[in-house]
Simulated assay, not measured.
Amino acid sequence: MALLFLAAFFWALKNGQHDDMYTPAVRMLFDDDKPEEEKAEVKE
């Protein structure tokens, strides 16, 4: 069983599963709110 997990880990490394370590950490900082222009249209 351990060899299966080890093989899966090395397969993931070989296929670039762990290449982008920066973007997921920064993604939560971006606001999902609508821009101010759209908010003004909704209020009117």
Rank of each mutant, 00 (worst) to 15 (best):
D19T: 13
K14W: 11
D19A: 15
D31S: 09
V26H: 07
D31R: 00
D33T: 02
D32L: 11
K39S: 02
P24T: 01
L6C: 09
A8N: 09
E44Y: 04
F30Y: 15
P24G: 05
F10M: 14
L13H: 04
F9W: 12
D32W: 08
T23D: 06
K14A: 15
M21N: 02
F10C: 07
A7W: 10
Q17S: 09
V26P: 00
V42E: 13
E44C: 06
D19N: 14
K34H: 09
L4V: 13
Q17F: 12
Q17E: 10
E37H: 06
N15G: 01
L29Y: 03
M1G: 07
W11S: 12
K14D: 10
K43G: 00
Y22C: 02
R27I: 03
L29G: 07
F9M: 13
V42P: 00
Y22M: 14
R27G: 02
V26T: 10
P35I: 02
L3T: 14
L29T: 01
F5W: 15
G16M: 15
K34E: 11
E37N: 06
A40E: 12
D20S: 06
D32E: 13
E41V: 11
F30A: 04
F5R: 07
F30Q: 06
H18L: 15
G16D: 07
F9D: 03
L6A: 13
V26K: 10
E41S: 08
A2S: 14
H18D: 06
Q17P: 00
T23V: 03
F10D: 07
P24H: 01
M21F: 12
E36R: 05
W11P: 01
A7G: 06
M1H: 13
Q17A: 15
R27C: 01
K39A: 01
G16T: 08
K39N: 01
F30I: 03
E36W: 09
D32F: 04
F5Q: 07
L3H: 13
F30D: 04
A25Y: 06
L4K: 10
A2I: 14
V42G: 00
K43T: 12
D32P: 00
A25I: 08
D32T: 08
V26G: 01
M1F: 08
M1E: 10
L13G: 11
E44G: 12
F30N: 02
F30W: 12
F9H: 08
F5T: 05
K34V: 03
A12K: 08
A40P: 01
Q17L: 14
L3Y: 09
P35Y: 00
K14P: 00
V26N: 00
E44T: 08
R27E: 08
D32Y: 01
F9Q: 09
P35M: 02
A25T: 08
F5L: 15
A25E: 12
A2Y: 05
F5G: 06
K34Y: 06
F30C: 00
D31L: 03
D20Y: 05
M28C: 06
